Amino acid sequence: MLKDLVRDIPDFPKEGIVFKDITPLLQNPSSLKEIVDKFTERYANQKVDVIVGAEARGFLFGPAVAVNLNAGFVPVRKPGKLPYETASMTYELEYGTDTLEIHKDAIKAGDNVLMLDDLLATGGTMAASCKLVESLGGNITGCAFLIELNFLNGKDKLSKYDIFSLIQY
């Protein structure tokens, strides 16, 4: 079971937070294959042109699923990491703000875009990523996560999208 390989790291990155470490899942070939296969199966009958993954752990599964779905992969990154012209979105965090960027030519008007990340917590990063994609004319077909922390109500910020998660806490 995938959930059994998620390791809890107390007080990381700061006191009071229990970090969900997916490294053991990544180290296990059959678990890694199962994750990619489950995402692929979920979206195999939908038209997906592009998968967008947010920095940094959204990069882990996105390219493999994109290959399986015959789709492209586009990274959403922190400021200054992308070499071409970018569109950016600043969003609120619990303790301030953060900004994400995407290449302006990464999404074409009408592209069907699957958003994929490792974790849905408060939903801020994914909501900002979705707004970025939509600002470029993309159509969000769904938001997929390896792990969802239900108690943080991240779905509330993503209520207009189809949400799928493999593991829930």
Rank of each mutant, 00 (worst) to 15 (best):
residue 45 N to C: 05
residue 108 K to Q: 15
residue 128 A to R: 00
residue 121 A to H: 03
residue 60 L to H: 07
residue 75 P to K: 07
residue 72 G to F: 07
residue 41 E to D: 14
residue 145 F to R: 04
residue 7 R to Q: 13
residue 97 T to D: 08
residue 152 L to Y: 07
residue 40 T to N: 02
residue 126 M to T: 05
residue 64 A to Q: 09
residue 47 K to A: 14
residue 167 I to W: 04
residue 106 A to N: 03
residue 118 D to L: 02
residue 55 E to M: 01
residue 161 Y to A: 08
residue 165 S to F: 09
residue 8 D to T: 13
residue 54 A to M: 15
residue 3 K to F: 05
residue 32 L to E: 00
residue 32 L to G: 00
residue 101 E to D: 12
residue 10 P to N: 10
residue 29 P to W: 08
residue 168 Q to I: 11
residue 128 A to T: 03
residue 56 A to S: 15
residue 93 L to I: 12
residue 48 V to P: 04
residue 102 I to E: 03
residue 57 R to P: 09
residue 1 M to L: 07
residue 147 I to Q: 01
residue 96 G to K: 02
residue 106 A to V: 02
residue 7 R to P: 07
residue 114 L to Q: 00
residue 92 E to F: 05
residue 163 I to T: 09
residue 30 S to D: 14
residue 100 L to T: 11
residue 20 K to P: 06
residue 94 E to G: 11
residue 83 P to N: 05
residue 32 L to P: 00
residue 30 S to I: 13
residue 137 G to K: 10
residue 56 A to R: 13
residue 112 N to P: 00
residue 78 K to M: 09
residue 91 Y to P: 04
residue 77 R to E: 07
residue 77 R to S: 00
residue 14 K to M: 11
residue 107 I to L: 10
residue 135 S to N: 13
residue 115 M to H: 11
residue 78 K to Y: 05
residue 32 L to C: 13
residue 113 V to Y: 07
residue 66 A to D: 08
residue 160 K to E: 15
residue 98 D to V: 05
residue 17 I to R: 06
residue 158 L to I: 03
residue 4 D to R: 14
residue 167 I to M: 02
residue 137 G to P: 10
residue 52 V to I: 04
residue 17 I to L: 14
residue 59 F to V: 07
residue 64 A to C: 09
residue 130 C to G: 06
residue 67 V to Y: 13
residue 51 I to A: 04
residue 71 A to L: 02
residue 125 T to L: 06
residue 77 R to D: 08
residue 14 K to H: 11
residue 9 I to L: 13
residue 23 T to F: 12
residue 41 E to M: 10
residue 154 G to C: 06
residue 152 L to S: 03
residue 123 G to L: 03
residue 90 T to K: 12
residue 39 F to M: 09
residue 100 L to W: 01
residue 10 P to M: 06
residue 66 A to L: 01
residue 25 L to H: 08
residue 44 A to Y: 12
residue 76 V to R: 05
residue 127 A to I: 04
residue 120 L to M: 08
residue 45 N to R: 14
residue 52 V to M: 07
residue 143 C to A: 14
residue 144 A to E: 01
residue 167 I to S: 03
residue 123 G to H: 01
residue 154 G to P: 01
residue 149 L to E: 00
residue 163 I to N: 05
residue 61 F to D: 03
residue 59 F to Q: 13
residue 143 C to W: 02
residue 105 D to R: 11
residue 36 V to D: 06
residue 121 A to N: 04
residue 93 L to Y: 06
residue 23 T to E: 08
residue 60 L to Q: 06
residue 6 V to R: 01
residue 71 A to I: 02
residue 60 L to V: 15
residue 2 L to E: 02
residue 129 S to D: 07
residue 158 L to W: 03
residue 20 K to L: 09
residue 80 G to P: 02
residue 164 F to R: 06
residue 34 E to T: 15
residue 49 D to W: 04
residue 58 G to R: 01
residue 159 S to W: 00
residue 39 F to L: 07
residue 24 P to W: 10
residue 162 D to Y: 09
residue 32 L to F: 14
residue 167 I to T: 03
residue 125 T to Q: 05
residue 95 Y to A: 12
residue 111 D to P: 05
residue 5 L to E: 11
residue 122 T to H: 05
residue 62 G to W: 00
residue 156 D to M: 10
residue 106 A to P: 01
residue 122 T to S: 07
residue 32 L to N: 12
residue 151 F to E: 15
residue 161 Y to D: 04
residue 86 T to I: 13
residue 97 T to I: 12
